[in-house]
């Protein structure tokens, strides 16, 4: 059974639909990326999943429990980090975890110590949170989310504010949680490289609508096959292949030809060029990147590199 089921969720604010008829599932052990440009409806969707915002229609089931009408039951299976995490500055990291543990119940001091070590905060756990950097707050938020061994982790921009080492550790941790403990991880990010590196499946939202959803392989090969050729006579080759598919020259002096088609034409291309007695120096399949898919669907480039960590506060 899917750990997270989002079923036809719509949320309107007046006339505007911030989220429109979104449906997807996240299975145990899966890392699911939720991509979209700013204002696409990612955070509203996450808030609906967490029960912070009521959907206008549709429903969200977490481990079978409705996140709105059965919030307590749903929240028991879920840990979350939403946007830039905020805490009570006058409490220490350990006290913050104790507060969450008290409400969740069945969380021992040993478990608190374990999650503090897991996120690399054991040394600073007894300092006031107001003195924590953004990266440390992000780690503390993850510790709170992991406290009760959730079946679903909902993360909104989880590596935001982390330094490169922290980003690496976080990704390792997420991979391990999904692979070893079967935790379903649903996370939103604007870093396409991060999604490509971590996710088994992704969804792209734009203007509140789910544009596409599937595995990375499905998305990058969806409706488009691309071949790149280096041939002895590019001009004649283009003419020979023109009836078959869209052909254009790429690279310096159009030395390479790029062939785009809705199906795999590699066999046909090779046969036609051989018949026309055109030598093939090199032929390769061009793998589309998530960036290309994102750009096509949203008309906006995604971010490929992590933004630099803001200074410690």
């Amino acid at each position: 059974m899917a750990v997270l089921e989002v079923q036809g969720v719509t949320r309107r604010f007046g006339e505007r639909a911030a989220v429109a008829d979104i449906t997807f599932n996240v299975e145990p052990g899966e890392v699911y990326g939720f991509l979209g440009p700013n204002g696409a409806g990612k955070t509203t969707t996450i808030r609906i999943i967490l029960g912070l915002v009521r959907p206008s229609s549709g429903r969200v089931l977490v481990n079978g429990a409705d996140s709105t009408s059965q919030h307590v039951l749903a929240a028991r299976s879920m840990g979350a980090v939403v946007e830039t995490p905020a805490f009570y500055g006058y409490l220490t990291g350990r006290e913050t975890l104790r507060q969450a543990a008290r409400v969740r119940g069945n969380v021992t001091d040993d478990r608190i110590a374990f999650v503090l070590r897991l996120v690399g905060l054991a040394d600073r756990a007894d300092g006031p949170v107001r003195a924590y950097s953004l990266g440390m707050r992000q780690r503390l938020a993850l510790a709170v989310a992991l406290l009760a061994s959730p079946r679903l982790l909902v993360l909104d921009e989880p590596t935001n504010g982390l330094d490169p080492a922290g980003i690496h550790d976080m990704r390792q941790l997420l991979r391990r949680l999904a692979a070893d403990e079967g935790v379903a991880i649903f996370f939103s990010t604007h870093l396409l490289s991060e999604a490509e590196e971590l996710c088994s499946r992704v969804a792209v939202v734009h203007q509140g609508r789910l544009m596409v959803e599937g595995s990375l392989a499905e998305l990058t090969q969806r409706d488009r096959h691309e071949l790149e050729l280096s041939v002895s006579d590019p001009g004649r080759a283009a003419a020979v292949l023109a009836p078959l598919a869209s052909v254009r020259g790429v690279g310096a002096q159009s030395a390479w030809l790029r062939i785009e088609s809705p199906r795999d034409l590699s066999q046909d291309v090779i046969r036609r060029l051989m018949v026309a007695d055109i030598a093939i120096n090199e032929i390769r399949r061009r793998r589309r990147r998530l960036e290309d898919v994102f750009l096509e669907l949203t008309g906006q480039p995604g971010s490929q590199a992590p933004v630099s960590a803001p200074p410690a506060r």
């Binding site: 967490l50 029960g51 912070l52 919030h71 307590v72 039951l73 929240a75 028991r76 879920m78 979350a80 939403v82 946007e83 830039t84 995490p85 905020a86 805490f87 009570y88 969450a100 409400v103 969740r104 938020a141 709170v144």
Partner: peptide, 11 residues
């Protein structure tokens, strides 16, 4: 913005 964490707890 601590209300998000508070309301995410099972209560």
């Amino acid at each position: 913005r601590t209300i998000t964490g508070l309301l995410s707890l099972p209560i």
